[in-house]
């Protein structure tokens, strides 16, 4: 019993290290499908434009100045006690600080200000939190609830699609992402996710075409590089696959790095085979 407990604890310890997100900072607002709902992908310049909006504090938190952001929020607490948006912002700042306990607390507080707890931002964010804590089913339910709540719901839908993608529920993810991509033709993360649906469905050509639509500035992302390489590999375009894999140093996310390494191995094997056959054909 004690041994089991110890092993369990050690497992938990190692599971705590993780990259925060792989999404890109989108400099062009038009290229940001979720600009009206989420500031996570705002560049510094775009965050600065929020200075004179009710999101000044949140902008600070997104910009890494969480203490200042929280202080600004604190200063307006009394007039915002019943404001769910306010508490959601407080929760957001704590989330960005990775204080999930407080983030959860304030998201719940935000929901408690609304009838039937129907406040999309807090619901969505609880889902994000759950996902972080690897409570996948709960996360999915939160995203669904957020999508049902009033107001814009691109983000919760997008997030739903992410969960579906992770668990290969491609028939659920696909329609969501296709619909969302119609509103923004060059959102890198949207295109990436949609391309991944096609990839996992085995529709390589379509996947590659989708990846190709990703604006240039984001194409050399590790995840984009990997899935593009997979698509190329499946299409038999090994040399192209090798090229893009070689050009990218995978450092952001360990699983990506492992997968990339494995793929590189396979690509090289294939190339070896081709080279060998070429050589044999030449001889013969």
């Amino acid at each position: 019993m004690i041994k089991n407990l110890t092993l369990l604890m050690i497992t938990l310890l190692f599971a705590s290290c993780a990259t925060k997100h792989l999404t890109s900072k989108v400099s062009d607002p038009l290229g940001d499908s979720f600009r009206e709902e989420s500031f996570l992908r705002y560049t510094e310049a775009r965050l600065q434009k929020l200075e004179n909006t009710p999101y000044k504090a949140l902008a600070k938190c997104h910009g890494g100045e969480t203490k200042e952001g929280l202080k600004l929020l604190q200063n307006t607490m009394s007039e915002n006690k019943r404001n769910p948006e306010y508490w959601n912002q407080v929760g957001m700042c704590y989330f960005l600080m990775e204080d999930f306990a407080k983030a959860e607390y304030f998201y719940e507080l935000s929901l408690n200000q609304v009838k039937k707890r129907s406040f999309a931002p807090a619901l969505n964010n609880l889902g994000v939190l759950k996902l972080r804590l690897r409570h996948y089913e709960e996360a999915l339910n939160y995203f669904k609830d957020a999508a049902r709540a009033s107001g814009a719901h691109k983000v919760p839908l997008f997030n739903q699609a992410q969960v579906y993608l992770q668990f290969n529920l491609l028939d659920q993810a696909g329609p969501i992402l296709e619909k969302l991509s119609k509103t923004s033709k060059n959102d890198p993360d949207l295109l990436f996710s949609l391309g991944s649906v096609y990839l996992l469905k085995g529709q390589m050509k379509r996947a590659l075409a989708t990846y190709n639509r990703i604006p240039e500035g984001y194409k050399n992302r590790e995840d984009v590089t990997l899935v593009t390489a997979i698509g190329l590999y499946e299409q038999g375009l090994f040399y192209q696959a090798k090229k893009i894999l070689k050009a990218k140093n995978f450092i952001d996310y360990v699983p990506l790095k492992r997968s990339a390494r494995k793929l590189t191995q396979l690509v090289e094997e294939k190339i070896k085979e081709i080279e060998a056959k070429k050589a044999a054909d030449k001889k013969g």
């Binding site: 993780a18 990259t19 925060k20 997100h21 792989l22 999404t23 979720f34 009206e36 709902e37 989420s38 500031f39 996570l40 992908r41 999101y55 949140l58 997104h62 948006e85 959601n88 957001m92 989330f95 406040f119 999309a120 931002p121 969505n124 964010n125 889902g127 994000v128 996902l131 972080r132 690897r134 996948y136 995203f143 957020a146 009033s150 107001g151 814009a152 983000v155 919760p156 997008f158 997030n159 992410q162 969960v163 993608l165 992770q166 993360d189 990436f192 996710s193 991944s196 996992l200 990997l226 899935v227 997979i230 996310y253 699983p255 492992r258 997968s259 990339a260 494995k262 793929l263 396979l266």
Partner: peptide, 17 residues
Amino acid sequence: IKHRHPANLYVLPKDRK
């Protein structure tokens, strides 16, 4: 290649309605 889409790293928080 043990590739799995890490939803956690792509989900977006919702800052506003």
